[in-house]
Design a protein around this nucleic acid. Structure first.
Lengths: 199, 199
DNA sequence: TATTACATACCGACCAGTCGGTATGTAATA
DNA sequence: TATTACATACCGACTGGTCGGTATGTAATA
């Protein structure tokens, strides 16, 4: 029998294994047995911690959301100009990606799932709304301080986010002649220069 | 018994039904019976035209690729400046999207599949490489004619494409306060203004 | 000793794919 | 212009493996 561990720890261990398997095989092709095997646990144990496969996936999304609060990513730079903070978040995100691509590669899986499951869609919408409003706040702040032109902040926030999402495509179909860093830098510069006040 | 139709027609009919079902339920949850029911055909008939579910999906991607050649989308404007052509393609894509969102909503499904199936990944890579090289050519053309600065054309092409991919996210999680057209316009302008030669 | 964390054996709904067969065309031959 | 021969399009009952989930038991912990 596997060493016993407190539920809180075991749940996270399971979630991480689930992430690996869901990314490798996709939600539907992922077997509960695969996940369990990944950490040498039993199916009974898994169902002790999670009610169902879908429940596990939802828990995974929630766990995943925690990793991605822009507040955490840019929070230490409140004094700097918005441009720098946004740039910092972007670079940080790229680094995160390099370290653990799986966190990003689940996203298409989440999207696909959201497209056929209302509750998942709500969850994901909620997450993205948070991210968007963080960026939006940064843009508005930049406008107030005369750093950016008077643009549609919500729209720009979306541009930033979808640009970062581009990394996912990048990772999947990796055109090996380009670097991820270069891609992120270029995109952010296009956006940030584009909304900067001209001098 | 359903009226007989030549294979070429029937295959397309099936592919269109498959698109609907795959988008609604996702590849794995989609049942061959669902697809068949959609057009009042029999399972036997389906398997007469396609060898397997996977085979059907591959055929779907190939069929889908045909709809999206940028050549077709921008081909009639060879004399205009690159900026206009690219803008035209973007607007045209947005219109296409409005008319038939399903064509775009399969993309996450394709991505998810590509992530676990080498052959599908090859196929998709090939498609995207085509799209990218078209955009790249347009950028290079713009550089030659002094319209754009001497930027990394391949990279910009990627920016354009991932920006357009943003529409998918847009469609899935539709932040109802923004219009798709506005999103596309803004993003394209940021990119195209960003690489334009300053006067 | 009650509860929590785990293991094992098992169930049964589900569904891709099969297969024996029918119906409708089409083109060569008599 | 019949007749024969073959091809293509289609039907739907059936099956066998798969896999999410459950029932039941056992060891550790509090």
């Amino acid at each position: 029998m596997t060493e016993r561990r407190p539920s809180s720890e075991r749940r996270i261990e399971i979630l991480e294994a689930a992430l690996t398997i869901f990314v490798k095989k996709g939600y539907s092709e992922a077997r509960m047995d695969d996940i369990v095997q990944e950490i040498g646990l039993s199916k009974g144990a898994l169902y002790h911690h999670f009610q169902s496969k879908r429940d596990l996936f939802i828990a995974l999304i929630e766990h995943w959301m925690d990793q991605f609060s822009p507040i955490e990513r840019g929070g230490l730079m409140r004094a700097k100009p918005s441009r720098e903070i946004i740039m910092h978040i972007a670079k940080f995100t790229a680094k995160l990606f390099k370290r653990n691509p799986n966190w990003f590669l689940v996203e298409p899986e989440i999207w696909a799932f959201a497209n056929r499951d209302k509750e998942i869609k709500e969850l994901a919408s909620h997450l993205y709304a948070n991210v968007l409003s963080e960026f939006e706040a940064l843009i508005k702040r930049g406008i107030e301080y005369g750093e950016f032109r008077d643009v549609n902040a919500g729209m720009i926030a979306m541009s930033i986010m979808t640009s970062l999402h581009g990394m996912i495509w990048f990772a999947l179909f990796k055109p090996n002649d380009f670097s991820l860093e270069e891609y992120v830098d270029l995109n952010m510069e296009l956006i940030l220069d584009g909304i900067a006040v001209q001098d």
